[in-house]
Amino acid sequence: MSILVNKNTRVICQGITGSAGAFHTKGCLDYGTKMVGGVTPGKGGQKDPNGLPIFDTVERAVKETGADATMIFVPPPFAADAIMEAADAGIKTIVAITEGIPVLDMVKAKAFLKDKSPSVLIGPNCPGVITPGESKIGIMPGYIHLAANDPKSKKTVGIISRSGTLTYEAVWQCASRGIGQTTAVGIGGDPVKGLNFIELLDLFNKDAATQSIIMIGEIGGSDEEAAAAFVKQNVKKPVVAFIAGRTAPPGRRMGHAGAIISGGEGSADSKIAALKAAGITVAESPATIGETLAKVLGV
């Protein structure tokens, strides 16, 4: 089992003819993802180098291919529009990789999505989502993962992370200790985004195959504090966390638009305290996330 995506998920790429879109479409195909086509307005009717059909609109792509997930590489000025187009076409899992979308565009897209259930958005500014061994929708290197149903996997974990590369770090550390991942989700570093910790904690909590959860947060905002409260109330599975940015000075934005400590809110220490108070084990170092979980699980 897994959450959000599995081997049957049919995926299109919006922005398939751009360099990043083309590169990672190939990467996903090589991983085994069921890529069924792509969208680039004005290039409908053509085929990509892998022989995938290209469509002018998402609506058409869905009609012709039965796609139920999309991976968006559309450039920032047009990316929010691409998200709304996907939702309107009935795509269930919308994964927005694009970095640098204006915040006010995301405010609108987020409001638009409210009326568009069952569509869910992951990202933007994220590595994507992967159910190892089944489907990879995004830019993460596939080989670092260990499938939850792999014979080498002794225990399983679901991973939720605000940071792309730290997700890889956690995945890699778990995989090398025989902890397979049911699904790993990068939720992205933007202030206004799709699925957040709480929704994903809920999904992993309900997924029978997921035995434990790793959540990776960073400075800024109060999502981790809200997640901690949710875990305390609802989650019985072991949860391990790491918060990046303990050494970050207040008032400076650390790359991610969301990663800024302002007015005393959003510091790593306050988040770590909230997580610990909720019974979550917090890894002290980014290098010991896997080790910490292994200890908790007795692997």
């Binding site: 940071s163 730290l166 940015g245 303990r246 050494t247 790359g255 980014p286």
Partner: peptide, 17 residues
Amino acid sequence: LVNGAGLAMATMDIIKL
């Protein structure tokens, strides 16, 4: 020199650690 904001922050953290 790091790729990714989260990993860049975490790298600062581990140096300090």
